[in-house]
Design a protein around this nucleic acid. Structure first.
Lengths: 105, 105
DNA sequence: AAATTAGTTGGCAAAAAAGCCAAATAATGA
DNA sequence: TCATTATTTGGCTTTTTTGCCAACTAATTT
């Protein structure tokens, strides 16, 4: 397999771990600091077991880190570089809405 | 629905459009310039019809633009900001492999 | 120790995504 | 005009992902 294909495969593990509305919401929330599972569940508005599986998936992909303190498990972003990533994603959407060239990036 | 959830939903359309090895390979290839469908098919090593559907999906999400010249359709990235994105994704993977803190980002 | 709180895991049904074949369209060349 | 080349679309099956329930583990409180 070509090196580019190899790289694409590895990247897809990380990108897939972001490719869900609930998981992107979690990332957005966690950019402003750590949160416990229950808080995230309230923000996401889904079953705790569902959220727990989303979090496990993101952690396994290397997106999140977690730490247990008492009864609670706190999750945080493993890497702050995603702020820039969100800016890029949102730009794509904005450009598409305007149906014009990418002015800013 | 909360504004954050609304935003996450819109972002997920773009992120899902990247969340596949073949589609990430296409993005990687297109960062160095436009290509026609047949060239991309050879690089991806899949059926042309499969690739064509991948490309249509990416275009609908705003990731790609295309232009027909003669018999061929040339695809290009709609936005060059993804170079930075790849750097971030690869860093996640590298950090996970090393199992240590995010030194660079 | 029993009850409570916080989170995870197993299992399964439903929904979404992927991939291929056959057929269609579109531009070019003989 | 007919054949060829390049790409897209429709349809259908297989695979993957999602989401909830029930059951489980782990730390804390009574």
């Amino acid at each position: 397999m070509s090196p580019k294909m190899e790289s694409a495969k590895q990247r897809s593990v990380v990108v897939k771990a972001m490719a869900h509305p609930t998981r992107l919401l979690v990332m957005d929330v966690l950019t402003s600091g750590e949160r416990c599972v229950n808080d995230l569940k309230d923000l996401a508005g889904c079953d705790v077991t569902t959220l727990s599986k989303h979090l496990a998936l993101m952690r396994q992909a290397g997106l999140l880190q977690c730490e247990k303190r008492g009864l609670k498990v706190f999750y945080r972003m493993a890497c702050p570089c995603f702020l820039e990533f969100f800016r890029c994603i949102d730009l794509i959407k904005a450009n598409q809405d305007l149906s014009n060239a990418c002015a800013e990036c």
